[in-house]
Simulated assay, not measured.
Amino acid sequence: MKRFATRCVLLAAACLFSCTEKHEGIRIAAPDDFCGVLAYYLVQHKELVNAAPAGEIFPLVDCCSTTTEWAMSADRIDAAWLCPDAAQNLLKKDDRFIIIGSALVNSQVLVIRKDGNPKRIAYSHKREYQRAFIQKRFGMDCETIPVMPTVLPHVYEQGNVDGVVVDILKGMTLKGKLLRLAGDGTDVVTYVLVVSKRFSRSASFPRFSAALQDSIANLNDIGTLTKVLDEQKKLTAAEVKQIAALSIRFVPPQLHGKR
């Protein structure tokens, strides 16, 4: 499993750095999970001027990894969807980027075994907001274990932990009870949109923003979402209803501060 995770990281790095220095399109990076559904819909269904083709959406195996930091700092990416912790860490190290705003809520879910209260829960390493919600919900006696995102399902299936925090698409493949991360019904921001300041001042940015807003409105319609998830992930209408029941939805980002 560790070898598989390493290969995934190397593959992502190859994709991220194989592009030429000069690029005519909008360079988008997105995780290959529920958030990635928005990125692919945006490129495939919206006629963006100078948009990079769908094959040039750079995959983020782990947005908290050094591979992602390298790609962003190397000025290879115009816009990326990152978890809140990764976004804040990036801005601390590189002031060429800004957070446009929240992009997706509640897509990281808890999967726990149905027998009793969990004593050990694994979460994605470096995503401290997940650890905080676990402790808030189950108390400090519940052990929180940081794990590489790619091996979380394996850790759970092997019985090493009582629960995991994973993306909804992975969570639906695991046996157990699916729960929202926040037990009190609070929306949890799971991804934010980060763009380079250079891109935010470019002529392409208003067109990108308009297409993004339209894409979000479309995907928040359960009929459209059902069709898209059938095309992309082969999910059934019943599974899409389960996603909607967990209040997982895309959020139109609002510009924070000056560009």
Rank of each mutant, 00 (worst) to 15 (best):
I26Y: 05
R7F: 12
Y40M: 12
L60I: 08
A86Q: 04
Q213R: 13
L16E: 11
Q242W: 00
A217V: 14
D230Y: 12
R201Y: 10
L193Y: 06
A71S: 10
D78W: 00
V105N: 04
L225Y: 04
D85W: 00
D221T: 09
A5V: 11
Q213I: 12
T6Y: 08
G176K: 00
K197H: 07
E56Y: 15
S202N: 03
G183T: 03
Y191W: 05
E69M: 13
E21C: 10
R131M: 10
L169V: 07
H125I: 14
A54W: 12
A244T: 08
A238C: 07
S18K: 07
V166E: 02
D85F: 01
Q108T: 09
A244F: 06
I112N: 10
F34A: 02
D184A: 01
V147T: 14
K93E: 09
A29C: 05
K126H: 08
I216M: 08
A238N: 13
V251N: 05
I145Q: 02
C15G: 11
W81C: 11
E239P: 05
C63P: 07
Q108Y: 13
G183W: 06
R7Y: 12
T66M: 09
P146V: 08
I248K: 02
P252D: 09
A203N: 09
A244L: 05
D94P: 00
F4Q: 13
S18A: 11
V155E: 04
G257T: 08
A5R: 01
A244V: 09
S73R: 11
L110H: 04
L42T: 04
G183C: 03
S202P: 05
L229V: 08
S124E: 15
T144L: 02
A54I: 15
L225P: 04
R201Q: 15
E47Y: 07
V164T: 06
K93R: 11
V151N: 10
Y156C: 02
D162I: 00
L110G: 03
L174H: 02
D187A: 15
A79Q: 05
V37I: 13
E69C: 01
S73E: 11
A39W: 04
E21M: 06
A52Q: 07
I98Q: 10
R137L: 03
A86D: 02
Q213L: 13
E24Y: 12
A14R: 11
I134E: 03
Q135V: 06
Q108K: 15
I112K: 14
D221N: 15
A122M: 04
K126Q: 09
G171C: 01
V188Y: 09
F17M: 09
I99P: 04
K170I: 10
D115K: 13
A52V: 03
C64F: 07
A238P: 02
L225F: 06
C15R: 15
N220C: 09
T20Y: 11
T66P: 00
L255K: 15
A52L: 11
V188S: 06
V9D: 14
